[in-house]
Amino acid sequence: MVRDSKGTQPGNPMWSDGWGWSWFDADEPLKTTSTDYRSDCKGCHLPAKASDWIYVSAYPVLRH
């Protein structure tokens, strides 16, 4: 995820909710396999919605 608080990519299915989203498989780290963050990413991040979609509980440094 890349922070996009200014909404620089309107209409791009991988950019919204303040972030640029993407998934990379370990065997091809230079190629994203996601095509739309709503169907490929957001579902897994719903539990972290209150912390701006980021899982911070296991990473204390991210809470600041």
Score class of each variant (00 low, 15 high):
residue 23 W to F: 11
residue 59 Y to C: 13
residue 63 R to L: 05
residue 7 G to Q: 05
residue 20 G to N: 09
residue 53 W to E: 03
residue 46 L to V: 07
residue 63 R to W: 00
residue 61 V to P: 01
residue 60 P to R: 11
residue 11 G to A: 07
residue 21 W to M: 09
residue 63 R to H: 00
residue 57 S to E: 14
residue 42 K to A: 14
residue 29 P to A: 10
residue 19 W to L: 05
residue 50 A to P: 01
residue 29 P to W: 02
residue 54 I to W: 06
residue 64 H to M: 11
residue 5 S to I: 05
residue 47 P to H: 08
residue 24 F to A: 03
residue 61 V to Y: 13
residue 26 A to L: 14
residue 49 K to H: 09
residue 30 L to E: 12
residue 23 W to V: 13
residue 59 Y to M: 10
residue 63 R to G: 04
residue 61 V to R: 10
residue 21 W to F: 07
residue 24 F to N: 07
residue 39 S to L: 01
residue 9 Q to M: 10
residue 41 C to R: 01
residue 29 P to H: 04
residue 21 W to R: 03
residue 30 L to N: 13
residue 64 H to I: 04
residue 8 T to G: 07
residue 28 E to T: 15
residue 42 K to N: 03
residue 56 V to Y: 00
residue 53 W to N: 08
residue 40 D to N: 13
residue 5 S to F: 01
residue 22 S to F: 15
residue 55 Y to K: 03
residue 51 S to E: 12
residue 32 T to R: 14
residue 37 Y to I: 07
residue 37 Y to C: 06
residue 41 C to L: 07
residue 63 R to D: 05
residue 52 D to K: 14
residue 18 G to V: 03
residue 62 L to K: 06
residue 58 A to E: 14
residue 15 W to G: 01
residue 24 F to V: 09
residue 56 V to R: 15
residue 62 L to C: 11
residue 52 D to C: 03
residue 42 K to M: 12
residue 2 V to H: 10
residue 23 W to C: 12
residue 48 A to N: 15
residue 60 P to N: 08
residue 15 W to Q: 06
residue 9 Q to S: 03
residue 16 S to T: 02
residue 20 G to C: 05
residue 26 A to P: 00
residue 39 S to N: 13
residue 32 T to D: 00
residue 63 R to F: 00
residue 45 H to C: 11
residue 2 V to N: 10
residue 52 D to A: 13
residue 7 G to N: 07
residue 50 A to N: 13
residue 36 D to H: 08
residue 44 C to H: 06
residue 29 P to N: 03
residue 51 S to R: 09
residue 60 P to G: 08
residue 31 K to M: 02
residue 13 P to L: 03
residue 18 G to E: 02
residue 42 K to V: 03
residue 38 R to I: 01
residue 16 S to R: 15
residue 50 A to F: 05
